[in-house]
Write a protein that binds this DNA or RNA. Structure first.
Lengths: 333, 333
DNA sequence: GATTTAATTGAAAACGTTTTCAATTTGCTG
DNA sequence: CAGCAAATTGAAAACGTTTTCAATTAAATC
């Protein structure tokens, strides 16, 4: 009843060569006489032989599969990275096992272990809150890991990002230079190093350069959702903010719509700058000015980096920083 | 130099039992004496043994991995389905290999074959244009396949969708009832059966019921992108359309913004109804009225269906239709 | 306590490749 | 054409599990 599968042995018999030879031609090994190669290839064609990747994986200890741990594919930011990852993965003949972690460390540990049990050749991790348990699990494995769009304070892992502190510093400075003395910093969870350590640092630096004292009331820690954004207008007004640096596009869209609904004009009465430059920035009215990040490229470069690690090629820089920019649209003056 | 891996054999030796017994306890087989089980479990703990899923896959011919073929994860519609799929997959202890096909049949064939070579236990396919070659490849395998958010005219495969013809029929009827005699049908590629056969059929039926002749000039075949949408206003006005039934949210957002930019008021001068009810519908101003589809659930149910197929459980209905609805927002009167 | 039956175990054969190492062929050189 | 190096091949041992089937042990029956 089972699908009768053609094995390498069948091919060998039919072509009257050994399995070893068939294996060689399948793997493009040069050490096989052209005539033999042709003979084998013909039989492969005739029998419609397809190598079993699982057996191959067991014998060679390589699965040509990498694990990708992502908080939520449903988030445009991560979806873009994932796309970049998949594209260069296929370019290098890898496939990706994609798993959603909801940034939950417990799930991350679990999924990491199942990925490792499946013998993935490498792992790309996205997530910015790494507790001790997870860190420990990371350290246990010799499987190469690279972080994509995720910082590593301990400087242990290869990773690709933009310079978050510089990027927000520049943009907050711009906001200040345009006359905003009270610019809010609206971000996702501060436990996430990318917010709490990097972006916030840039924000503070900009303030400091401008001689403006840091006011804790101006930092709004949120859950990065659109909904939350829509609710923020009263609080923002209450602290007399006239501009906001926001760390997520959906969140920023929420804030902007909340403002509009309360009849505060963006950008005239309130300027907004967001961080991820997803398509959403263009679709919303007014269009949102944003720090630009090469999202797709972050994923792509991360995957490329991972291939180097997997092939034991030298990598010059573990902490790669891709260029950021500013896309001025309509939510800033 | 290699990571010295603990194998089942090491555990067996250390616990002085056979591999078979270790295998049994690892797999939760009931036929093992509690005392033995404990002994083995202790050794497993002590040695930190992790079963090798590849070896397991070879021996058992099950990989607990399913392949997911998706046009583009970067598209919210598919991202939502993918999330639903992954969630129930993990619920049933499966992982997903996610691949982007760009709705390109050639890529789909290729990726299908690599998935099969990797011995996935099942496949979830998203895509609505299936040429003969692809169809043939599908037919060759005995691996269960289910379509998610994708129709199958030949009624060969299990699939989960909503009733596209009924849904657009109802909504176009509403548009007509509200006085629109010229409602445009703006869709993605008509070669895709979901558009060319299903949705268009609903559109025509609504017209017919209302005694309005079908006018080909009112159907706009596009590439489903936001950009294209923004460019459509002149053409829409040229044919005197006063409303549009649109098959994609980003496309619809483009159309709406194009209208606004040209100072035609939505919904007063032009009504728009879209089809996928993604988050975007809420973020855009005016908010877009939409046919509602349980996107996440389509993915989830598809995956659940696949588990049944993989476990040879009976499935009562190959063509599952989930309920649709209408979310009235601000782009319709 | 002798049988019979059920529960528990282990030996060894798959699973379908890759890879090592030695054997065989082939091609050159002089 | 002997002698040697290089190219080509094959035999068989991994790889780390699951699974079958027979053997052993424990429990139950009378």
């Amino acid at each position: 009843m089972d699908k009768q599968t053609i094995t390498i042995y069948d091919v060998a018999r039919e072509a009257s060569v050994s399995m070893a030879t068939v294996s060689r031609v399948v793997n493009g090994n040069a050490n096989v006489k052209p005539a033999t190669r042709k003979k084998v290839l013909d039989v492969i064609e005739k029998l419609d032989y397809r190598p079993n990747a699982v057996a191959r994986g067991l014998a060679s200890k390589k699965t040509t599969t990498v694990g990708v741990i992502v908080p939520d594919v449903t988030n445009m930011y991560f979806a873009s990275l994932a796309r970049g990852i998949d594209d260069v993965a296929t370019m290098y003949k890898y496939n990706i096992i994609l798993t959603n972690s909801d940034s939950n460390n417990e799930k991350e540990v679990k999924v990491l272990n199942t990925l490792l049990s499946k013998q993935v050749d490498g792992i790309i991790f996205m997530g910015n809150e790494i507790d001790d348990k997870l860190r420990e699990e990371f350290k246990r494995t010799k499987t190469p890991i690279v972080f994509a769009g995720s910082v590593d304070e301990e400087n242990l892992y290869a990773r690709v990002n933009i310079d978050y502190v510089a990027a927000v510093q520049v943009e907050v400075k711009n906001l200040i230079d345009r006359g905003n003395r009270r610019v809010a910093f609206v971000c996702g969870p501060l436990e996430q190093a990318i917010n709490g350590k990097f972006r916030l640092k840039g924000y503070k630096q900009a303030l400091k350069s401008a001689g403006i004292p840091y006011d804790e009331k101006l930092v709004f820690e949120t859950d990065d959702t659109y909904k939350t954004g829509t609710l923020l207008q009263p609080a923002l007004m209450a602290v007399n903010a006239t501009a906001a640096m926001v760390t997520d596009d959906e969140l920023a869209a929420g804030i902007m719509n909340g403002m509009s609904d309360a009849d505060v004009k963006v950008p005239d009465d309130f300027e907004i700058i967001t961080s991820n430059d997803t398509k959403l920035t263009e679709m919303v009215r007014p269009k949102m000015s944003s720090i630009t990040q090469p999202l797709y490229d972050i994923g792509a470069v991360a995957m490329r980096l991972l291939t180097k690690l997997m092939h034991n090629e030298p990598v010059d820089e573990k902490n790669v920083l891709l260029p950021y920019g500013l896309m001025k649209r309509e939510s800033t003056k």
